[in-house]
Nucleic acid binder design. Structure first.
Lengths: 194, 194, 194, 194
DNA sequence: GATGAATGAGAGTTCATTCAT
DNA sequence: AATGAATGAACTCTCATTCAT
């Protein structure tokens, strides 16, 4: 049971994203996901322990790669200002290129119960640590204040980015997300004041 | 039916906050709320159209007053910098003085389905407009950039504050929230960069 | 929940006996029992904790009265030999007058899982103690051997009576059960040997 | 298909006994039996028509030999009294030397549905006929009453022995079973009365 | 107004059996 | 002969809402 990876494993994950994006979290029955994946209901349980496990795996798979990619890309940059820029840009890019995934992560998965959300937070930790690394580097090289409160700054950045993406999703992706990096990056960097 | 106000109306709202804070959104059945409020299950439906209506009304009642209070207080201040400070401080204060309400608004109510959350967003609009007013004033008096993107700036501020509160709730209110205004306010105002 | 007694409580118990007797233990869904009782599926759960609870309550109700009745009747007799006769006769009578109940207790309920059967054994203890009382009395007044092994004698009597009833049920009640008391009573009393 | 005998055939039967004894009837899935037998799930169906067939075959194999052995042994005895003694003693011995089999035949297999139990009864007929033979012989040689009701006497004997074994199994084989023959044999022979 | 007993739709999961390899 | 991945039917229980009293 639960052989992670495999053709069907991926099929089921992708079906789950599609079904949840289209029907909403609470109307996404296992049988609907199975049908979309082109497998029998029971087959789901050869690859996942239960329904929760699908959702958590979905997040781990998709967001795990998400964090990895950003991390790799950040290493190519040297200045902290650019790193922050790239971090935001890639965050926006990844979600803009997969509207269904954006709906699932920004809206639907947040309706799940607390256990699932705690597991999701575990995955997010990797992302938050990425932010921390950038901040720390900025403090060390003098780009940021020596007394910068890392935890609060991290929450500020994540909260702002996340809110912007959520608004974009709730407005049905009616505008381009990536260009907003030009607006939010200087705001985070220099603040609101002139 | 649904006569807003009345002794029982308030009792039910308060019972809902308590029950949801203690049991979590998904374990807060109507019957549990009725029991906590000291009324019969059926009585709930004399004051609320359905369960959704309780949650939305709860948010409207509690956050409506929340916004009003901030608004009143803001008028006493003249500088835009101070207004932003007060806005954050009062936001933190209101939630810190009612832990149960904080749990409900930051964690539990977000598990509700999209329809409810859209209604909740309606209520939040009042708050967001408050932010907008401050921002606009800042642009006009030259405190903020002339080209400041209002919408993005508003999302930045709200996202940051909200994320900080949510983290505080998820850490079981183990530290003081209000003092964080001293950290977040300058960050929002001046940005991360030196 | 689980208010023992009440018009519907009895209706559901009786419906369960009928449905199980007619369809067999494994084809007696809660919905079938509810339909037979003329109530909604959910109503079952106002009176019983779960399906198991129906079966256990069924046994307790029916067999509880069964034991009580025999006990009362035994007090009217003075000789131990008569008491044994009456015990068997009433056992046979009670089951012969309710064929459906006989099917349920002799065949269907024995297919239930071990937890239920252990609860059933608890109820049976009352009956076995009744046998013990008669045996003890017989030992004391000299009707039975002074060295009579009570436990084994009790198992002998119960096993024999139970097997005879089960055979009668499996033969579709095609013959009269009560008259068999004339055959089994002397066998138990005097043994097989001349 | 279903070629009775063969190395794997026996392996599967033995695995079934072990798995059922350890996990209980309702937790003994075909896949568990296959695993214990060291074969693939599908292989089971090369030797048995379906799951029912395993259980019935199990009973036939084990109890078939059981009856044969008793029959052979009985021919060595001449007196009817001794034959009855040997019958009970061997019944107890066979089950006492294989605790797992005893659990399966006395407790677990009785949870199967009526069709299986009727097939089991078919197998038991051979045993009951053995009892009948002894009884008949006893009637003919004057050891037992001329008017002895064979059917009832047979049920009495079988019911008593079976109940004693079942009690022994349910008490986790905490006492010796075979010595009880000394107690039950005279009771059956001479009855309870002095 | 207030009650609370009754309703009934809805979904996750197991497992005996099959069949392509 | 042997495998084991895949199948899909089947059922208990919860809980928002109603309505007779």
């Amino acid at each position: 049971m639960a052989k992670k990876r495999g053709q069907k494993y991926d099929k089921i994950i992708d079906a789950a994203v599609k079904v949840i994006a289209e029907n909403g979290y609470h109307h996404s029955q296992v049988s609907k996901i199975a049908k979309e994946a082109g497998v029998a209901d029971g087959t789901i349980y050869l690859y996942f322990k239960n329904k929760e496990d699908i959702l958590i795996s979905l997040f781990e798979e998709k967001m795990g790669r998400f964090v990895e990619k950003i991390q790799e890309r950040l290493q190519e940059e040297s200045s902290v200002e650019r790193k922050l820029y790239i971090l935001i840009e890639m965050h926006f890019m990844q979600l803009e290129k997969d509207h269904e995934l954006a709906i699932v992560t920004q809206l639907e998965l947040r309706q799940s119960n607390i256990e699932i959300r705690q597991r999701i937070n575990e995955v997010l930790k990797g992302y938050l640590e990425l932010i921390d690394t950038v901040l720390q580097e900025g403090v060390e090289d003098g780009t940021f204040e020596k007394e910068l409160n890392l935890r609060i700054a991290r929450q500020l950045i994540f909260g702002a980015i996340d809110e912007i993406v959520t608004n974009w999703v709730m407005k049905d992706h009616r505008y381009k997300l990536v260009p907003l990096v030009e607006t939010i990056h200087p705001l985070l960097l220099r603040g609101l004041a002139k």
